[in-house]
Amino acid sequence: MPKTLSPSKLIPAGTLYRGREGQWSWVAHRITGVVIFFFLLVHVLDTSLVRVSPEAYDAVIGAYKNPIMGLGELGLVAAIVFHAFNGIRVILVDFWKQGPKYHRQMLWGVLGLWALVMIAFSIRHLSHVFGG
């Protein structure tokens, strides 16, 4: 059999490491962490505006009252809720003796709780955003 040189010979990209639940929960934890950090940055700035001028503060907060920001808030809550529950899971992995053994089951628990909270929150929040 001759050696076949494929056209992909020139593509140097390697594959992504195919980790499992542990790796992807860590990736999600990092991403949500960064998202929350940027929110806090903006949040500290807009809240500190009230010390400068209450009118400017009202104007900025008023600008948030539109559907796009409403969906953004939904995303933010989704990120915070995941980060919070997964944070508890990470603590348990480190400090509970059986933690490493049940880390996968705990992740399903985290996602279950996350879905539950998000369904309840979405109904209430979106009816506020789009219900007027």
């Binding site: 499992r20 542990g22 790796q23 860590w26 992995v93 480190d94 490493p100 053994k101």
Partner: peptide
């Protein structure tokens, strides 16, 4: 260690690596 469990998953000898690291942390 960020407990991603990739090590425990990869070990060809089936060592519970993340568990061992946790025990050292403790």
């Amino acid at each position: 260690c960020r407990t991603t469990f990739n090590c425990s998953e990869a070990c060809p000898r089936g060592i519970q690596v993340t568990k061992a690291i946790s025990e050292v942390k403790q």
